[in-house]
Structure formats: structure tokens, C-alpha cells
Amino acid sequence: MADTEDLSLSRRDLMAAGAASAAIAGAPATASAATPDAPHLAQVTFKVNGQKRSLTLDTRTTLLDALREHLRLTGTKKGCDHGQCGACTVIVDGRRINSCLSLAVMHEGDEITTIEGLGAPDKLHPLQAAFIKHDGYQCGYCTPGQICSAKAVLDEIKAGVPSHVTADLTDALKVTAEELRERMSGNICRCGAYSNIVEAIGEVAGGLSKGEMA
């Protein structure tokens, strides 16, 4: 029985603990390997933009490819596939991650939010509207990642997560241009819309504070 009193225990822990009877809880396999190169398939169930999705996937499938190729949610982009650009940023259980560097099968039970979950052309999220207003995008390819990242950045600041440019680690955080620039630096925009992106995010945050750099 899971230790439900431990508040830091994640839901995945609970599921793993509950489901596992053997020493090593293997993900349910629907095919086994005949040759060393044969793919291993596994099932995974998670929620994407509020909707429960179950997939049987090659274990090698990244969360990014599961979204783009299997669920056909192509708003999340593949820019480098190596965690070097941020175009694949999605929000998992409230936190932004690079979906290219995460296996889909490792997201059992997770809640995933992609750009499609934030808003639609006829029902824009405030960040999406602000990006349009401030022209915070050009080719559009890094844009969904920038917006997902921006949403999480504002939540991180609210939650008091410090950054490299936070002058005093023990002070309350402010939304400054420097803070946004540092925190958004994992999202590369080769078109160079940075200046506009920061203005768009700043507007949604309710304006930028003056800050001093670390």
C-alpha cells in the first residue's frame, strides 16, 4: 500500500507502487523481441490537453514524436531533437520540459499541456494574443515552444523559483526584463524576435518591474 501521507510523493510513484508486484515492474509488453533489433512495444496512458490518451509505442518513441506523429499534435516542434533549442517545450504536470529528451513511456499518468491546449485561433490564450500583438514571432517554428515556456516561466516566478540573474536568492522575485530573458534562454528564436517576445510576456505579466542584475 502506498504511503499516502507523504505529500512529496508524485502520482507516478503511487501508480508504480500500486501496480508493481514483482521486484521490477515491467511496462506491459505487447510484443517481445525476436532479434536484438526488434522494437519493444509498451503501452502508456497519459492526459494530453485534458484528454486521456492510450498509446502502444516503440519504447524508443520520445514524448515529442508521440505527440507529433502518433497523436498528430504537430504544434509542438522538432528543431534539434537534442535539447539544444527548446522548440519542443511542453508542460508536464505544471512544469516545462524538452519533450524531445523524454521517452513517452516514462509519462504514464502524466498531464501534458501542449500549445494546442493553451488556446485556438478563435480562442487565443492571453500569451498567444500578446505574441501576435507584439509580433513576437516570425517564421513561427519556435513559437509554440516559446509560448509554452513563457507560461511556465510566469508560474515559476510566482512560485518563487530563482534564476541565474536573481540578484538576491533570498528575496521575493520580480518580473523584470532580465528575469524573462534569462528564463526564456532555453528557447532559441533564430529569426530573432526576442525583443518582442519579452515585451509580449511582460504585458501578460502585468508589466515589467525595474530590476537589478546579479
Binding site: T74, G119, Y137, G140, T143
Partner: peptide, 11 residues
């Protein structure tokens, strides 16, 4: 803009 910021523009 609306297509690009919502991930609906197909590349």
C-alpha cells in the same frame, strides 16, 4: 499570427 501562435500552421 493566429495559426502560428496556436501551432495550427502546418510545416
Amino acid at each position: 499570427g493566429p495559426l502560428k501562435t496556436t501551432g495550427m500552421a502546418p510545416y
